[in-house]
Computed example of a mutant assay.
Amino acid sequence: MRLRLRQFRPRTGPHEYRIVQPRRPLRHTSLSAPEPIGLLLGDHDGLNQLAGLFSFAAYSRHTIVHVPLRDGVPPDEGWGERVDLVLAHDSAGLRASQWPELRRRLTRGTPLTVRTDEARTARDMESWRARRSHADARDELRHATHARTLFLFGTRDLFVEMATAFAYAAGWGPLEKHAANGHMAFMTAFTLAEPPGTGGHPLEVDICFKPYPPYAHFKRPGAPKRPRELRTPVG
Rank of each mutant, 00 (worst) to 15 (best):
F186M: 06
T149S: 12
C208I: 01
A189G: 05
L5K: 01
P34G: 02
P25M: 13
T12H: 11
D43K: 10
D90A: 13
L39G: 00
R105P: 10
L5D: 01
L3E: 04
Y212L: 02
A130S: 09
R2Y: 09
G38N: 04
L85P: 00
L69F: 11
P68K: 02
S30K: 10
E140H: 14
R95P: 03
D136S: 10
A144H: 15
D136I: 05
L3N: 05
R11E: 14
N48P: 03
H66F: 12
R131T: 11
L41S: 03
H134Q: 07
P211F: 01
G222A: 08
V67D: 06
R104I: 06
R120C: 10
R27S: 09
I19P: 03
I207Q: 00
V86K: 05
W128S: 04
F209V: 00
L5H: 02
G38W: 05
G222Y: 06
F151L: 08
P227Q: 13
I19R: 07
G38I: 05
L50Q: 05
R228W: 15
F190N: 01
T145Y: 10
T107A: 15
L102F: 14
R11Y: 10
V86N: 07
A119Q: 14
T113M: 13
V114W: 08
R23M: 10
K219D: 06
R231P: 08
I64T: 11
E101P: 00
R108W: 14
N48Y: 09
D84V: 08
P100K: 14
G109H: 10
F153D: 00
R228C: 07
T164E: 04
A223R: 13
M184E: 07
T29D: 01
P14E: 08
R9V: 12
W79F: 11
L150T: 01
E126D: 15
L53N: 03
L106A: 06
P211W: 00
A165R: 00
L203M: 09
R82F: 13
G173R: 02
V65H: 09
R4D: 13
R18H: 14
E126F: 15
H15K: 14
L50C: 06
Y212G: 02
V65D: 07
A216L: 13
H28C: 12
D124G: 04
Y215N: 05
P34M: 05
P34S: 07
V160C: 04
D71R: 10
I19A: 08
M1L: 12
E35Q: 14
Q21V: 08
A58Y: 06
P74R: 11
A170D: 00
P22S: 07
L94T: 03
S91Y: 13
H178I: 04
E204L: 14
D124H: 12
F153R: 05
L39A: 01
L40V: 02
G199W: 09
A170R: 01
H66Y: 15
R220T: 04
R226Y: 14
K219I: 06
G235I: 13
R148M: 09
L87D: 02
K219Q: 13
C208W: 03
P211M: 01
L192D: 02
L150S: 02
M184N: 03
G154I: 01
A180E: 10
R24N: 09
E77S: 12
W172R: 02
T63W: 14
L192K: 04
P74E: 08
P68N: 06
D76Y: 11
S60F: 09
G93Y: 15
R142Q: 12
N48R: 08
T155W: 12
A122C: 10
W99S: 02
R18I: 12
